[in-house]
């Protein structure tokens, strides 16, 4: 009999303890964020999607269209074609990243021998349709320049590249 009562008291105590935990949390500040209004700061080195970096001097892509990124990609998300610029340097004529396939794994950035690629810090990688997720060269250069603290196109003369990119 006394063991039953002891058991009941122990049970009651355990249940009261649980309620004390929840009521303590009740009077504390919520930890959630109101997302579109409030945004958490991103950590340093956050990986968004791959972007193409630009040469600050000329405004051209750093990319030489060697194709190392496309070969490193596990999902064939990158498609590119090269061309020769007027000064003889190789440049991408067409560079297309299919974000529907991208795993955001960083392998392309690591594969690049010219440090021409970088991951953006965007995390709102959404679109209303599939086409919006296929990023062409101007999109990638714009995002890359943003990571470098520049605005694309740069206010320097190198219009050849962009025209070609749009044509593709």
């Amino acid at each position: 009999m006394s063991s039953i009562i002891a058991d009941i008291l122990r049970s009651a105590n355990s249940i009261v303890q649980g309620h004390l935990v929840t009521i303590r949390e009740f009077f504390q500040k919520p930890v959630t964020e109101q997302y579109p209004d409030e945004r958490l700061p991103r950590m340093e080195g956050y990986r968004g999607h791959p972007t193409l970096l630009v040469e600050p001097e000329t405004g051209r892509p750093k990319c030489t269209a060697c194709g190392a990124c496309a070969r490193a990609c596990p999902n064939n998300a990158i498609e590119l074609e090269g061309m020769k610029a007027e000064d003889g340097r190789r440049l991408p004529a067409k560079y297309r990243l299919d974000m529907t396939r991208c795993l955001v794994c960083n392998l392309c950035v690591e594969a690049c021998p010219f440090d021409a690629l970088a991951m953006s810090r965007e995390y709102e990688l959404v679109s209303w349709d599939r086409e919006g997720l296929i990023l062409d060269m101007p999109d990638l250069l714009r995002a890359g320049a943003k990571e470098q603290g520049l605005t694309y196109p740069l206010p320097v003369k190198a219009p050849v590249v962009e025209k070609e990119g749009e044509k593709a």
Partner: peptide, 14 residues
């Protein structure tokens, strides 16, 4: 948060 700091991602870290 720690993983994001180290690897740049929060779920599939690579």
């Amino acid at each position: 948060d720690l993983f994001e700091r180290a690897s740049g991602a929060r779920l599939t870290y690579s």
